[in-house]
Design a protein around this nucleic acid. Structure first.
Length: 541
RNA sequence: GCCCACGUAGCUCAGCAGGAUAGAGCAACGGUUUCCUAAACCGUAGGUCACAGGUUCGAAUCCUGUCGUGGGUACCA
């Protein structure tokens, strides 16, 4: 609908010069009496034209040449809004369109031929994924799907680091657990990984191999811990419907010599220096506040160097769009990396860094502090088992990524039936049920009869259906997956209202067929939308 | 101290490319089923959009400051 109005104004700019090049905005007014779409152009032009806004609005509307089959009325209201009213018949013509496009309704081709990589989760394999990682996982996966719906070919990637201090401690933790089973008394240090999962791994090792592994090095145990934990992580992700295309090991950057290459490039560009035995990156020269260490005096690189090298591989893999999704605890790290990449000549415009805020876990009124090392966490698996995949996914996607999220575990467990996700799924199940029933009655849908759909609740419902493709585009360009969830809730509400006001079965036959077609259109959009969010669309509940 | 995000109904949160009377769910109260699924629908009540300035014809939305919350500010990632 908006597209049509925009095309009108584009044509208009030939007649009225001052329209050309304007940043036009059209929005759906809050009140129905204000029309279907509204624009404030006239008000924004008052200064430039030195005229009364209503006068300008009149000038514009007089010059507009529109198709009366599409627009029924244009009026000037309030301080100078121009309100457009659409012809109900045009609104209803969306039904056959949706039925024709089916599972593709809402997809667009604007990014066809382009490729994107979305990096997310990226938790180091030191323990099971927690509820905290869940938000990252679900947001990342949904954004990837949204990008696919606009035409991108998308790769989902998980980046991890299996070297360094934390992993050594992990290996040592497992070794100690194992040695204890072999009968060797030991003290388990407080700073080691306390989690039960390591005890489990140790136990299965002992059951399989007895005490024959006693003399192995720490690295042997580290490898085992890593392998087992990764298996667990992949399983956890698959439980909430997430499949990574690739797992990128930081260590490979050393083996390929990428790290060395980056160091050399910085040296060549005179962007690094040595001080106190460490190698520093001249970030101050790139406009940052202070220089940072790239290689510690111990010879180990800090996260910056591999992060830079890793991003270079993304550029070398020739993605058109590079999306990084981090929790706010990583917010401080990426500006350094971006500045460095830019200095090395990479087009950082392609990189979109998304920062989501943390989930605060509440147990009633108590805040639950989680730490993988201290093992006082709630795993994502536990949560999924408790409330189900759909609820987990919906919970993490339904709010804006920049808002802090409170998650009351007691509430989630107790009132899981009241989760809004059921509201959406119920609307879908209800439609399926009606269609089953109608089929039994020998009724058939007929989308060519859409002109019969004129009831107010039908019209508002169909206007909502019109908005779906635009909503996807808008949500995707702003990386705002929660908007899809909000949209679907509104659509479901309008359907439920339609359901209570209009009967599908038991009315005149043609009207019945037209309403069945409308129901199918709603079902299609719900299913497509739920699919984008990674949720199931049940046939019955 | 400095940097980032956030502060909207009792609770959890939408709205924030400036627009017309600030919304939803839950919780509270009341109503709707001889009729396609009541996991639904309708209604009542609930607000100084943290606070104070500023920009604007117009601010929950943009800017500045204050307060509060979370995160960061390491030769941890």
């Amino acid at each position: 609908m908006k597209d049509y109005i925009i095309s009108l104004f584009n044509k208009l700019s030939e007649k009225l010069e001052y329209i050309a090049g304007l940043d036009l905005t059209f929005s759906a007014p809050a009140q129905e009496t204000h029309g279907d779409l509204s624009t404030n152009v006239a008000m924004t032009l008052t200064k430039k034209l030195r005229k009364n806004p209503r006068q300008i609005a009149a000038e514009i509307t007089d010059a507009l040449d529109y198709d009366e089959r599409i627009i029924s009325k244009i009026e000037i209201a309030g301080p100078g809004f121009i309100n457009f009213f659409f012809n109900p018949e045009y609104v209803a013509s969306i039904v056959p369109v949706i039925i024709r496009e089916g599972e593709n309704y809402g997809r667009s081709v604007i990014n066809n031929g382009k490729s994107a990589i979305v990096e997310f989760v990226s938790a180091n394999p030191t323990g099971p994924l927690t509820v905290g990682h869940g938000r990252n996982a679900v947001i990342g996966d949904t954004i990837a799907t949204m990008l696919e719906w606009t035409g991108y070919k998308v790769d989902r990637e998980y980046y991890f680091n299996n070297a360094g201090r934390q992993m050594r401690i992990l290996g040592e933790s497992l070794r100690l657990r194992y040695m204890a089973l072999c009968g060797e008394e030991n003290e388990f240090p407080e700073e080691y990984y306390q989690g039960e999962y390591l005890v489990d791994i140790a136990r299965s090792l002992f059951e399989r191999e007895g005490d024959s592994l006693k003399n192995n090095e720490v690295s042997f145990f580290k490898d085992i811990a890593e392998r087992e934990i990764f298996r667990d992580i992949e399983n956890t992700l698959s439980n909430i419907n997430i499949k990574m295309k690739s797992f990128f090991n930081e260590h490979s950057l050393y083996e390929d010599g990428k790290i060395e290459e980056v160091l050399k490039s910085f040296q060549e560009k005179n962007l690094s220096y040595e001080k106190e035995g460490a190698k520093w990156l001249k970030l101050t020269e790139l406009g940052m506040e202070q220089d940072k260490v790239m290689v510690k005096s111990t010879g180990e690189p800090t996260y910056r160097l591999p992060d830079i090298a890793y991003h270079i591989t993304k550029f070398e893999r020739e993605y058109d769009l590079i999306v990084d999704l981090f929790g706010s605890d990583h917010a401080a790290t990426y500006p350094d990396v971006m500045a460095a990449l830019k200095a090395l000549g990479y087009d950082t415009e392609k990189v979109k860094v998304l920062i989501h805020q943390f989930v605060t876990i509440m147990e009633g009124k108590e805040v639950v502090k989680m730490s993988t090392r201290k093992a006082n966490f709630i795993t994502l698996d536990e949560l999924t088992e408790e409330v189900g995949r759909d609820v987990v996914r919906y919970f993490f996607i339904m709010r804006g990524i920049s808002s802090h999220l409170n998650f009351d575990l007691q509430l989630a467990k107790k009132h899981s039936d009241e989760n809004p996700v059921f509201y959406l799924q119920y609307a879908h199940a209800r439609i399926c049920s009606i269609l089953r029933m109608a089929d039994k009655e020998g009724l058939e849908p007929d989308d060519s009869l859409y002109r019969l759909l004129t009831a107010p609740s039908e019209i508002t419902l169909m206007k909502k259906l019109h908005q779906f493709p635009g909503e996807i585009l808008y949500s995707t360009s702003g990386f705002e997956p929660h908007r899809i969830a909000n949209y679907l809730e509104e659509l479901a509400a309008l359907f439920h209202k339609f359901y209570t006001e209009c009967r599908i079965i038991g009315v005149e036959k043609d009207l019945s067929s037209a309403r069945m077609a409308l129901a199918i259109a709603v079902q299609t959009v719900l299913k497509n939308g739920l699919g984008i969010l990674g949720l199931s669309a049940p046939d019955r509940m």
